[in-house]
Amino acid sequence: MTMFGSNLVLYEEEFDRINAVLARLWMDANAKIVFLVDKNGQQIAAKGDLDKVDATSLASLTAGNVAATDGLAKLIGEKEFSILFHEGERDNIHISIVGQRLILVLIFDERSSLGLVRLRVRKAAAELEEVLIQMASKAADQGEAPASPFAEITDDDIDALFTE
C-alpha cells in the first residue's frame, strides 16, 4: 500500500525541500494558503496566512474528504479521483493527491484562478513526488529507522504527559 514502512518519518533535508516547494507554489499560484497533509490527516507542512485558519482541523477534514471521495471512486470502479475542487463565494479549495500518499491543498480567492492553480499544482506535485521518492530510498538505505527517540521512554514519562 505504501512505499514506506508503516510510519512516515520526515527528516530535516526533505522537510526543507518540501517547504521550499510549497513556498514557491504559494507565490506562483497566488494562493492564500498552501499545505501538505498525509492521507491520515497529519499536517506535514504549510505556507501562507495560517493565523486565520485552524490548520489541524483543516488537515483532518481534508483527509476525511479525500478518504470519502476515494471510497466513492472505488464504488464506481475508479482508482481514485486525483483532484477535488470546492468553489465558494469568496474562497476556493483545490485538493490533489500526490504520490498516492500525500494531499496537497490550496486555498485561493479571485486574485488567482483555477487554471493557474492547476498549472502550478502540476509542477509542484511532480517536485513533491521526487522528494517522496528520496524519502523512500533513504528509508530503504537505512533499513531500520534510526533509534527511535522513544526507545528509552519510561512509565514516568508517559504519566507526566497526563498530569494536569
Binding site: L8, N40, G41, Q42
Partner: peptide, 15 residues
C-alpha cells in the same frame, strides 16, 4: 501509523 517529524520534532498519533 504515527507520523514522526524530526525536523520540527513532533510526533503525531491517531487513536
Amino acid at each position: 501509523m504515527s507520523f514522526i517529524n524530526y525536523a520540527s520534532r513532533e510526533i503525531n498519533c491517531k487513536i
